[in-house]
C-alpha cells in the first residue's frame, strides 16, 4: 500500500518538477552549475573505476577460455561488448546512483527540514521545479558523455592489462575490439543512460523533497533515495533490454 502511495506522489512531484519555469535564465544558470557538480565532479571516480572494470573483464575472459579452438581475439571482443552493453551504462549508473542520488536527497532534504523549501513556496516559487529540474536536465546532458568516456577507458583498461601481463598479444586484443562492431549497441547503451539519469535525479530529488523532521530523517532520506534509484535502475534495465535487444 505504501508503495502505491509513493508512486502516486512521485507522479505528482514530477508534474510539479516539469511545470513551466518562472525565469528561464535563472534555471539555465543553475543547470550549468549542476553540470559541473553532478557531471564534471564525477569524472574522476568514473574514469578510475572504468579502467579497472575493463581490466577485470579481459582477465576473466582469458582465464575462462581453455579451449585452443577459441581465438585470442575473443578477449578484446568480449571486453568491448560487455563494456558497451552492460558494464559502462549499468554499473556506472549504479555508482552514480550512490553518489548523485544520495547527494541530491541530502541537499534537498536539508533544505526541507530547515524550512528553505517553505521559504521558496511562500515567495511563489515552484520549489520542486526550481530545485530538481536543473539537476534532471544537467544529468541528461552530461551522463552520456560520462558513459562514453567510461566505455573507452574500460576497453583501454583491458588493453593495458593485456599489454602488462602478456596473457594474449596486444595485436589480438586490438583485432578483437574491431570485430563485428554494431553501432546500435552504443545507441542502446545511451538510451539506457538517459533513463538512468532521469531515475537518479528524480528519485533522489523526490526522497529529499518529502523529508519531514530533522537531520536524522535527512540521513534516512538520503539512503532511501539511493536504494530506490538502484531498484528502479535494475528493473528498468531489464525492461529496456527486453524491449530493445
Amino acid at each position: 500500500m505504501r508503495i502505491l502511495f509513493h508512486i502516486g506522489h512521485y507522479a505528482l512531484f514530477l508534474r510539479e518538477t516539469f511545470a513551466r519555469p518562472e525565469r528561464i535564465r535563472i534555471y539555465w544558470r543553475r543547470t550549468l552549475d549542476e553540470i559541473d557538480l553532478l557531471g564534471v565532479k564525477s569524472l574522476g571516480i568514473v574514469s578510475v573505476l572504468s579502467g579497472f572494470m575493463g581490466a577485470v573483464i579481459a582477465l576473466q575472459t582469458k582465464s575462462n577460455i581453455n579451449n585452443p579452438f577459441i581465438p585470442d581475439n575473443l578477449v578484446g571482443f568480449a571486453t568491448r561488448q560487455s563494456s558497451i552493453l552492460e558494464f559502462s551504462p549499468t554499473i556506472i549508473a549504479l555508482i552514480l546512483a550512490g553518489k548523485v542520488a544520495g547527494t541530491i536527497a541530502a541537499e534537498i532534504g536539508t533544505m526541507r527540514v530547515k524550512e528553505q523549501i517553505d521559504a521558496l513556496d511562500i515567495m511563489g516559487v515552484n520549489s520542486a521545479g526550481y530545485l530538481v529540474l536543473p539537476k534532471v536536465v544537467a544529468a541528461l546532458v552530461i551522463f552520456p558523455f560520462l558513459i562514453i568516456i567510461s566505455m573507452f577507458l574500460s576497453v583501454f583498461g583491458g588493453y593495458l592489462i593485456v599489454a602488462a601481463t602478456g596473457i594474449i598479444s596486444t595485436a589480438a586484443y586490438e583485432e578483437g575490439i574491431r570485430l563485428d562492431f554494431d553501432p546500435f549497441t552504443v545507441t542502446y547503451a545511451l538510451i539506457k543512460t538517459e533513463v538512468f539519469a532521469f531515475i537518479i535525479t528524480t528519485v533522489g530529488g523526490y526522497h529529499g523533497y518529502i523529508t519531514r523532521g530533522g537531520t536524522r530523517e535527512v540521513g534516512i532520506s538520503s539512503t532511501t533515495g539511493v536504494v530506490w534509484s538502484i531498484v528502479a535502475i535494475i528493473i528498468s534495465n531489464f525492461v529496456i533490454t527486453k524491449l530493445m535487444l
Partner: peptide
C-alpha cells in the same frame, strides 16, 4: 495564489536563508 504570495513576506523560526 502565486500573485498573492508575492505580496507576502515571511520570517521563519530558523531564518531559512538559502545555504
Amino acid at each position: 495564489k502565486r500573485a498573492v504570495r508575492q505580496e507576502i513576506g515571511m520570517l521563519f523560526q530558523g531564518g531559512a536563508l538559502f545555504d
